[in-house]
């Protein structure tokens, strides 16, 4: 019966950090890149809290509070920048900004065509129920009453 050790929490923090890094590197949507960066911060916060718990002082938790402050500032600035970039290009695709690369770097082009978009599902139609009433030709006498 061994209790949880520092190792377990550090492993979870490391995995969160790594996943966030992969997301930041691979995804092209600016908002998802921002979320991945926040996920890396979550991994670090978990590490610091675990150190605080196993060292028996509150300094780690105080650090996480500062980390939260920085994360909030980052969120504000990042979303403002995303908004500005979107106004310029009308798109969240980060690859549209690749003219900012170094001169000797090759451009990043999309070679594979996207698979064709699936056909939109047809709207559901009610099956007709009951009989259609017989439309009798109105006689001239009835029509004259109206």
């Amino acid at each position: 019966m061994s209790p949880l050790t520092l190792h377990d929490y550090l492993a979870v923090g490391a995995i969160l950090f790594g996943l966030g890094m992969v997301g930041f590197l691979a995804r092209r949507n600016l908002i998802i890149m921002f979320l991945s960066a926040e996920m890396m911060l979550q991994g670090v916060a978990l590490n610091l809290t675990a150190f605080a718990r196993y060292r028996g002082n509150l300094q780690g938790q105080a650090f996480v509070l500062f980390l939260l402050t920085v994360a909030a500032c980052e969120a504000a600035i990042a979303l403002a920048l995303i908004l500005m970039l979107f106004r310029r290009n009308r798109s969240l695709d980060v690859s549209l900004w690749q003219e900012l690369r170094e001169d000797d770097q090759p451009p990043n082009l999309d070679e594979e065509p996207l698979p064709p978009a699936p056909e939109p599902e047809p709207l559901p139609q009610l099956t007709p129920a009951g009989h259609e009433p017989v439309h009798a030709e109105p006689s001239h006498e009835e029509a004259s009453h109206v």
Binding site: G18, V22, I32
Partner: peptide, 25 residues
């Protein structure tokens, strides 16, 4: 959007993540 259906260098990105996580573990 088309940006959401593609990734930038998916193999290299996951390889970098693997090296980082593997080394940390």
């Amino acid at each position: 959007a088309s940006a959401d259906q593609r990734s930038r260098e998916p193999f290299l990105a996951s390889l970098a993540g693997y090296i980082l996580i593997g080394a940390l573990l």
